[in-house]
């Protein structure tokens, strides 16, 4: 029964196409919410920000070094707690792991005032249009992205880093192996 076989193949093919469409539709519908969110292992989106001293920082220029990318605000209490640890380790890991602190849309005055108050020397940039924040899908502050020397995200830390040890462990993870 050649014809019968042909019909079976035909039906199987049509059903397969339909099943494919249905699965695709259900999948895209269900993942719509989380789509575009960054995860560990993803390539960190590149950006270009100007820090308080007028220096430009492009993420891709940091390739070969680990990056501690921190999103913060002056009003946020946990941000205030983790800053001193960050300052200390920035000195210690100088040249190996760089800190980029991105303030989310506050005024120049507020940010410089804060930096002076806490004696921060690592680069701090203001993301005035919240463009970088959107690109990284940051919701609560602080959020820290640990970026490996190859430019991929090693870990995303949501919330404050209270202990110096926690920050040190993160630094160790993205330190270029030499």
């Amino acid at each position: 029964m050649n014809k019968k076989k042909k019909r079976l193949y035909m039906r199987s093919a049509i059903l397969a196409v339909l099943a494919g469409l249905v699965i695709y539709a259900l999948y895209t519908n269900l993942t719509r919410e989380t789509r575009g969110n960054l995860e560990a292992g993803d390539k960190a989106p590149d950006f270009l920000l100007t820090d308080l001293n007028g220096e430009k920082h492009r993420l891709s220029d940091y390739e070969g070094k680990g990056v501690f990318l921190n999103f913060w605000g002056t009003w946020c209490e946990p941000c205030k707690k983790e800053m001193p640890h960050m300052e200390k380790l920035a000195q210690e890991y100088n040249g190996e792991v760089e800190i980029l602190a991105v303030n989310v849309g506050e005024s120049q005055f507020q940010v410089s005032n804060f930096a002076d108050q806490y004696g921060l020397t690592f680069p701090i940039a203001i993301d005035s249009g919240k463009e970088v924040m959107d690109a990284y899908g940051v919701d609560p502050l602080p959020t820290t992205f640990m970026i490996k020397p190859d430019g991929t995200i090693d870990q995303i830390v949501i919330g404050g880093l209270i202990q110096e040890q926690q920050v040190r462990e993160l630094f160790e993870r993205v330190k270029p192996s030499s």
Binding site: L48, A125, V132
Partner: peptide
């Protein structure tokens, strides 16, 4: 809302002026 629409001629990376 009285709005003005602009195009970013450079359209560089996020955060760039």
């Amino acid at each position: 809302t009285d709005a003005v629409l602009y195009r970013d001629e450079k359209n560089e990376l996020p955060g760039a002026k």
